[in-house]
Design a protein around this nucleic acid. Structure first.
Lengths: 192, 192
DNA sequence: TTGATTTCTTGAACTACTTCAAGATTTTTT
DNA sequence: AAAAAATCTTGAAGTAGTTCAAGAAATCAA
């Protein structure tokens, strides 16, 4: 059962009573995505926050030059959404797409407030999750600003060796902030 | 009174009753920082979250090459902390320093949980603040990855014209991710 | 109000990447 | 199993930045 994965994740940060868990469940919606299926497209309003139960997703946009630029990945047990669009209910500047067949749980914006009133611990859970996500993005800035492309690539493959197998190389290059050709040359140099 | 500025900020996101405001105040500590004074140094454990009432601060670290790299600025009405160090209570990899004479309000980590229990709305306030901060950092990645140094500089000075006057150019260059010399050349080219 | 410190400028040589193009390989679909 | 689509590779030429060095200008401290 998909929701069980989310419950396990939540319990790591806040202790939920049986009653609270039962209150929470009706707010969750299971969604299955095929490979390459979009759950958000540029110009649409982001209506939910998505928890990846199993699979892999990317958030990206199309640059002025017409190329794709990836800003975030999400794998099992990560939340993903365009929080700016979700918050302001304005058209998104991003796309969110499944890279492989993916199961997500959606928490709809318009019932989220009601959930937080009924189960205040969920507000706490998201405060903690967001704090960690923001702290991680500060570290990402650190890496982007001080490491060369080669160093960032090396750091990434040693930190997430299994993940590297799951996404096409050109997506990894985009996420790390350099061209697919450059990554190919790095690999050639290192015999990877 | 410094705390009044924070109360005004909080009220923008959550409505606080008179009682709740009175509960909150004893948790706040006012700190005055001189220009160049540090409130956190690399290796120390970050013990509080800081709200800038008036002034300007930077969060930076020293690269392997011995140069300073700025990851965040904070001006009036922004929170600043090394959230990773604060959360895990491990030594920080960053420095936080006042760029000009600055007044901050500190919210200590070890009493924060107690505050959230007494005034749950504060947990909500931080959930909202963190959500906005994280959404903003996603946009910052967008700019870093797609705009040239020149474009980022132009975008920044048109978005925050007053801020540019307040910090030395070399700090702005560092924040934007290029060398001070390069920024100087950009300005020469544009007669700014 | 002078000296010390910090910040900004400029040019020259260098490099970590990019772009383009075209073919090779792998994966997916039928 | 063949055709189509997606992904990866390689080389050559170009460029947006960097580093270094040294002086000029602005700001700060006594």
């Amino acid at each position: 059962m998909a929701s069980e994965n989310l419950l396990i994740h939540i319990r790591k940060f806040v202790p939920l009573s049986k009653t609270e868990e039962e209150l929470l469940l009706p707010y969750l919606k299971n969604i299955s995505l095929k490979k390459k299926e979009h759950i958000l497209k540029e110009g649409q309003i982001c209506t939910a926050n998505y928890f990846v139960v199993k699979g892999c997703m990317r958030m990206y946009f199309i640059t002025e030059q017409g190329t794709e630029q990836i800003v975030q990945f999400a794998i099992d047990n990560w939340w993903l959404a365009d929080l700016m669009s979700l918050d302001a209910q304005k058209p998104s500047q991003f796309n969110i797409q499944a890279i492989e067949a993916t199961e997500v749980i959606a928490l709809d914006k318009n019932i989220q407030e009601e959930l937080f009133t009924k189960v205040p611990k969920m507000e706490r859970y998201f405060r903690i999750i967001l704090q960690k996500a923001f702290a991680a993005s500060v570290m990402r800035f650190r890496y982007i600003f001080t490491q060369s492309g080669e160093e960032r690539f090396h750091h990434f493959i040693t930190s997430f060796p299994d993940f590297v197998q799951r996404v096409p190389q050109y997506m990894l290059a985009s996420y790390l902030g350099f061209s697919a050709e450059f990554l190919s040359k790095l690999r050639a140099k290192k015999n990877i």
